[in-house]
Simulated scan of single mutants.
Amino acid sequence: MTINVLDDLCVFDFETSGLDPAKERVIEMAAIRVVKGVQVSEFRTFVKYDGKLVPKITELTGITDEHLVNGMEEKQAFLNLRRVMGPKTLLVAHNATFDLAFLHYAMFRISEITFGNPFIDTLTIARGRTTYPHTLTDMCNKYEIKLDGAHRALADVEGTLALLQAMHAERPLDEWINKLSYVEKYGKPDWVPAHAELSPVVWKK
């Protein structure tokens, strides 16, 4: 049965203390739930972090240790996020391999469960449909989408949602559900969802 990807979806994004989802932590999160093209809920928060951010993260995101002092406790933040997501909603992210891994490790750390939601990765679609480069900023430029405040969670969510809608209007995205690509020369990611269809791409500039 064909699924309309715009029927019920949740676009989400994490800013993190580093790149390793097994060791690092989410420091900011945002999500927008859309049902039949209408935004029905939005969630964003800083997440309390037990450590000091490395300068590179602050340089990239603008997030400082002071932002995180009064952030939401990790467990409560992820419980709230999962309420927005729901158990069966289509999850959407740009470079979903990264965000889904952080979601998995956080959920498992907090409650020893993971998620089973279907998902779409706009980066994987970009690699399949357009030429390099494929960052969210580059893809928004290609589709003439305004992206203010890249590398902040809510801005990236809004950009990803607009990108998804533009790509879907161009050609339906149903075939991309649960598909993830990875750059062959860097090897397979350490973790992907059990229901992911993983495929390599050759990175050509």
Rank of each mutant, 00 (worst) to 15 (best):
E28V: 00
Y105I: 03
A93G: 10
L90H: 02
V47S: 08
A22I: 07
M85K: 05
P55F: 07
Y49A: 07
R44H: 12
M29P: 04
E73P: 06
D65I: 06
V40Y: 14
F108C: 01
Q39I: 12
E74N: 08
Y49E: 01
V34Q: 08
A31Q: 11
A93N: 06
R33G: 04
R33Q: 07
M72I: 06
H104N: 05
A96S: 03
A96F: 07
Y49C: 00
N95P: 00
Y105C: 05
A93T: 09
E59P: 02
G51M: 04
K88P: 11
G37K: 13
G71R: 04
K88C: 10
M29E: 02
G71M: 02
V84I: 14
T58N: 12
I63E: 04
G62F: 14
T16Y: 06
T89E: 06
K52T: 14
Y105N: 06
H67F: 07
L68K: 00
N95E: 08
V92S: 06
H94G: 00
M85Q: 00
G51N: 12
G62N: 10
V84N: 09
F98D: 05
L79T: 11
A31F: 06
Q39K: 13
V26D: 00
N80S: 14
E73I: 13
K23R: 15
N80G: 14
M72T: 01
K48G: 08
T61Q: 02
L81H: 07
P21A: 11
G18W: 02
V47L: 09
R82T: 11
A96Q: 05
K52R: 15
L79H: 07
T89H: 05
M107Q: 15
F78P: 00
G37I: 08
I57R: 10
A96I: 09
A30Y: 07
R44N: 11
K75H: 13
K56W: 13
L81V: 08
L19Q: 15
R33I: 01
R44I: 08
G71A: 13
V38S: 13
I27M: 07
L103S: 04
K36T: 12
Y49G: 00
A106D: 02
H67K: 03
P21C: 10
P87M: 06
K23G: 00
K48W: 08
F43M: 11
T61S: 04
R25D: 05
V54F: 14
T58K: 08
L19H: 14
A22D: 15
K52H: 14
K36M: 12
P87D: 03
Y49D: 02
N95V: 01
L91Y: 03
D99P: 09
A77H: 04
E73T: 15
H67P: 05
G86V: 06
P21H: 00
R25Y: 12
R33Y: 01
T89F: 10
V47Y: 07
V35I: 13
T89V: 13
D20V: 08
R25M: 05
R44S: 14
